[in-house]
Amino acid sequence: MLLLDLLLMLLIAYGFGFLYYGLYRNLSARVHGRFGPSLAQSFSDSIKLFVKEESTTFGWMFYLGPVIMASGAVLNVLFIPFLNQGESLQGLSSYGNLIVVLYLMVLGPLGNALGVGSSGNPFGVMGVTRGLTRLLALELPFYLAAIGVMIDAGSADFGIIMQAQSTQSNMFAHPLLFAAAFISFLGFMGKSPFDVVGAPQEVYSGPATEFSGKFLALLMSQSAMFSFAKLLLMVNLFWGGADHLGELVAKTFVLFVAATFIGSVYARFSTVQSVEFLIRIPTLLGIVGLALL
């Protein structure tokens, strides 16, 4: 029963992750005044890449990189409960809590660094270095906000955090913490102005430069699932989770569209600028939010 539940969670994350990615391309096309690709475009891309041959090898560590990333994304999806009540779609959340999830969020970038590092491609290494530098700055405000939420609920357990928001969601109870976490979330989603990792005009494809075929498809799938996991995390921590699947889709959709529109209109920060910005403004908001608790 649990296995079936886990499988269903992964399928939902995969499906909605890709659907949202297709939606992202479509919406940003509309912002540019284009029609853009169809919603199923990301599915076509990923299936095509899964049946394409891959042309390069740099040893087993190179292959392990995407696998570690994918396992990080899968575990993230499984440890975050989809709904705030009932038995189904809870996954492994009774075995872990917010701290485990925060730890697992760093697993992906580290796996990526190991895999890309063994390829020796300069653009890949540059992308990874940029990613890890940005990650340092991203984690600080997000952890501050998470600590605030945990102090408020008196627990690190997702169920208790979501229960504590049954009267008023954390977004209105602690707006400063929400602001800090939301800016950091934009960075985690890899949207402008924080998209320094795969910046096309600067480092070509960034970390994905050497990956082809199935491994690129794996990277794309894990990135889609991981972004759904991040949407879930934000919904659970600040919007009180969801009672049923419809509410979950509605809430993640609103959050996703907000992130997409912000990403469509802002130009890219340089790596140093993004680190400076993240360390100054959201961190300050987070500290003030913590003090007001």
Partner: peptide
């Protein structure tokens, strides 16, 4: 925007591997 070939699923990639 005027011709928008992304409608057909055409995307530019930076490396021959992909």
């Amino acid at each position: 925007s005027r011709y928008d070939i992304e409608r057909l699923g055409v995307v530019g990639v930076a490396t021959p591997r992909q």
